[in-house]
């Protein structure tokens, strides 16, 4: 009797269910999109000094703040552009005092105080974000450039994260 050949059946192709993986990946993308600051050109990556008494920036505050970053090398960066207030580097980089003069001209001036005939005070506020290890001389140069242009509202950036032992 002829043996009947058994038909060899291939198992159906295994189909892994990708749905949970895609869910997780989408959740990760949404998380990174929310927490990331992609194009913040005004703020450089710096190690700021610690100050637990520093104020938190108020969201929606009307005043405009010019972020001045003092890099560990002493170079000043404003909107990713390098400047200097160091007389020894005056030819190499644009002069900070001239930049602040132009910047302050775009803001209103407050009425001068009686008996003080100098440059009327500017409404511009400058936030100095200096690296914690940078020499104070470079911060002084920013202060000096501000004072010469009547900018009196300044602040020093600091981190509130507790430094670890």
């Amino acid at each position: 009797m002829a043996k009947r050949k058994r038909k060899f059946e291939l198992d159906p192709e295994p189909k892994p269910d990708l749905t949970p993986m895609i869910d997780i990946v989408f959740n990760l993308i949404i998380f990174f999109m929310i927490v990331s600051e992609l194009s913040n050109l005004t703020v450089e990556q710096l190690q700021l000094p610690f100050a637990d008494r520093s104020e938190e920036p108020r969201p929606g505050a009307p005043e405009k703040i010019l972020q001045v970053n003092v890099m560990p090398t002493g170079i000043v960066k404003i909107r990713s552009q390098a400047y200097t207030g160091d007389p020894q580097l005056k030819g190499k980089y644009p002069w900070l005092q001239e930049f602040l003069e132009i910047e302050a001209a775009g803001y209103e001036r407050e009425p001068p105080e009686p008996g003080q005939p100098g440059t009327p005070p500017s409404a511009l506020r400058v936030n100095i974000r200096a690296d914690k290890e940078v020499k104070f001389q470079y911060v002084q140069q920013v202060f000096d450039a501000c004072v010469r242009n009547g900018i009196y509202k300044t602040s020093i950036g600091a981190t509130r994260d507790d430094p670890k032992n």
Binding site: V35, E37, L48, A51, R53, S54, E55, E56, P57, P112, E113, G115, Q116, P117, G118, T119, P120, P121, N127, F143, C146, V147, R148, N149, G150, I151, Y152, K153, T154, S155, I156, G157, A158, T159, R160, D161
Partner: peptide, 20 residues
């Protein structure tokens, strides 16, 4: 985002050219 704050420091007003 780090918890970044600031400390205000008001510089002297009217210390430009010709100040008292």
């Amino acid at each position: 985002k780090t918890t970044e704050g600031f400390i205000m420091c008001f510089l002297p007003k009217n210390r430009g050219q010709g100040s008292g």
